[in-house]
Design a protein around this nucleic acid. Structure first.
Lengths: 156, 156
DNA sequence: CTTGATTAGTTGTCAGTGCCAACTAGCTTG
DNA sequence: CAAGCTAGTTGGCACTGACAACTAATCAAG
């Protein structure tokens, strides 16, 4: 295992990671967009529902933070989702400026279907991997996420 | 290594791939958007330049196909890039309806800087992996891309 | 060689995403 | 209670994206 660690190998790998990650993102982005549209959602709406469902609801500001969007943008997105019957909100009685936004039954249903469709496709994608390789793929994705988050500081 | 292959393990892995891939995409998307904006490009403009530079130019229709966008959208994007001095085009003399779109010097410069910035960040990200693990990460991303492309048929 | 079909791009229209700045209304603190 | 802070909304702008209708150039018959 006496691999020679040349600086250029790191450089080369970093460049290859750029290519691979770019390709990965583009493919999965398009795939997700198609799936979402097929289930009557936009990508942002699907993200928003994911956040709302994973936390039993959110304030608008919290949702904006989670989506990394301006609260004005988020406000309009939530308004649109309300119009389409995907979310509902109430005013917490102890702070009547705020909204407590939750997914509606319809929102939950659509997001659930979308998620299941993508998971089904993932299962097809992973089917021919050996279990250990599957776990490896997932672990590596998670690590890259963690490291990118940690290295974060993207807005210095 | 006598791992028991239960159907539910594939299901579970598929669900975990969903979580991991979603997180990955969101992180890298934001990262790329920040980088692009910092270099005076939007994400779509960066994609377009990537395509134009990797092929010595493109027809509008070819660019639309590569970007998976409607040609009307692509037309406006190219118009915007022209306005911002990122691309230029000529009319091939054998078909004067068509455009041959190429990146301008400025477009090339900005894309190059953007790419190098991301590769630098990737290098930091990968630095603490053992070389073999780095290669593994890249290989797996590539495989997932290939399989997703193959399984493609996203628009049946 | 002219008509008819096809192809390349553009434009109109609409909806959605996204930002910043300015705003309203409710809450908190001195 | 006044001043200031916080939660969301609205106005204005630009970009992304789709679909349909359009212009102009090329190609295919006849």
């Amino acid at each position: 295992m006496a691999e020679r660690r040349s600086p250029s190998s790191l450089q080369r790998d970093a460049a290859e990671l750029y290519e691979a990650a770019t390709a990965f993102i583009r493919i999965y982005q398009f795939r997700d967009r198609d799936h979402a549209l097929r289930h009557g959602l936009t990508v942002v709406q699907a993200y928003a529902l994911d956040i709302l469902l994973s936390r039993d609801g959110q304030r608008l500001t919290g949702l904006a933070d989670a989506l990394q969007l301006d609260k004005s943008t988020t406000s309009r997105i939530v308004a649109g989702m309300k119009r389409h019957g995907l979310v509902e909100w109430t005013r917490p009685e102890h702070d009547r400026r705020a909204m407590w936004i939750v997914a509606s039954a319809e929102g939950k249903r659509r997001y659930g279907r979308l998620r299941r469709a993508i998971v089904r496709e993932n299962a097809r994608l992973l089917a021919s991997y050996a279990p250990a390789a599957r776990r490896g793929a997932i672990t590596i994705l998670r690590q890259l996420v963690q490291r990118a988050e940690g290295a974060g500081a993207l807005r210095p």
